[in-house]
């Protein structure tokens, strides 16, 4: 996931750096005999890529919906409006609603600090931001159990004050925040670095305050990248399984998120219902994909030199 995010960001950054609109460059590449591949090479590559795509991405997606509807729409909707499923939806939405805004604030401030300022320990901070990507989600969950669990470092203090973190909603929210930590920052850092500090410096010279510069110069320049990060962050927050599974306690109706609810239903031989709930998550993925494509398109459009010239 990280690789994808980074490559997209650097890809858009390249357009800015080279100053060539992507479409015209694309045409040159195809037209030149030196860079054009023989038709059979092109078609073979296309067939392999599309075949792989169909087998590993489309078929599972198709299977989820087929299995979900195997016993008809009645069973499908019954599985979705069942109290435990509704409570899982509520919890998933709540966790995302807390984790995403917090990571938004964190991501923007971290990216801003890293891209626009020089300070000691900058590399260390970048490494820290990447930590949730490199740590297994299960380990992430166990960390919280070790810290906040009844036998953990702060467990007895929280126990004495009747505050529950692990095996309750706060633990799930914390775990979600942890695993979605890098998404927004990682999206913004390369983008902001590519844009450089020129515009901010100009704004400062013209008398803008720090906040004014941030709101009117920095933020508008990265808004599509930011939205892209938020969408990815949200998708992961709602889909997270490993870390949440460790801290959840699996109390149905209370601490089950949608992915955990799917597992429980599946383990109870309730396959139609499991796939019905899974189809919700698949639907979320499709919506995410559509939004992502739209945002990417807008991002490229905003960053291409023509539109920038029009804007100024």
């Amino acid at each position: 996931m990280a690789g994808v995010t980074n490559s997209v960001a650097s890809h858009t950054a390249n357009h800015v750096a080279s100053g060539v609109p992507s479409s015209s460059r694309h045409r040159d590449y195809q037209a030149s005999p030196a860079t054009r591949e023989a038709p059979w090479v092109r078609y073979t590559l296309l067939t392999i890529a599309l075949g792989f795509f169909t087998l590993f991405l489309l078929m599972p997606l198709f299977a989820v919906f087929t299995e979900a509807l195997r016993k008809g729409w009645g069973v499908y909707f019954a599985a979705l409006v069942e109290p435990d499923a509704l409570s899982a939806m509520r919890l998933t939405l709540l966790a995302a609603a807390i984790a995403v805004p917090l990571n938004l604030v964190f991501g923007v401030s971290a990216a801003w600090a890293i891209a626009k300022f020089e300070f000691r320990g900058k590399q260390f901070l970048i490494t820290l931001i990447d930590l949730p990507f490199s740590v297994s989600p299960v380990v992430a969950g166990l960390i919280y159990v070790l810290v906040f669990g009844a036998q953990g470092w702060f467990g007895s203090w929280f126990g004495d004050h009747d505050i529950r973190i692990i095996f309750a909603v706060p633990g799930i929210v914390l775990a979600t925040i942890f695993v979605t930590f890098p998404f927004i920052a990682r999206e913004l850092i390369p983008l902001m670095e590519a844009q450089g500090r020129d515009e901010e410096e100009a704004a400062t010279v013209l008398g803008a305050s720090g906040w004014q510069t941030f709101w009117r110069v920095t933020l508008p320049n990265v808004k599509w990248g930011l939205l892209y990060g938020v969408i990815l962050c949200n998708a992961r927050a709602m889909g997270e399984f490993g870390a949440v599974s460790v801290v959840s306690g699996h109390i149905r109706g209370l601490t089950n998120t949608l992915p955990l609810h799917v597992e429980i239903l599946y383990n109870e031989y309730n396959f139609a219902a499991a796939f019905a709930v899974a189809s919700l998550l698949a639907l979320l993925a499709l919506i995410t994909l559509a939004l992502k494509t739209y945002v990417e398109w807008r991002q490229t459009a905003t960053l291409s030199p023509e539109s920038r010239e029009q804007a100024t």
Partner: peptide, 21 residues
């Protein structure tokens, strides 16, 4: 600036945890 933000996040998280008693 960044430190303040981190502090803010940490304290918000704790506040969120509190109502779940």
């Amino acid at each position: 600036m960044l430190n303040n933000r981190l502090l803010l996040i940490a304290s918000t998280t704790l506040m969120l945890a509190a109502p779940a008693t």
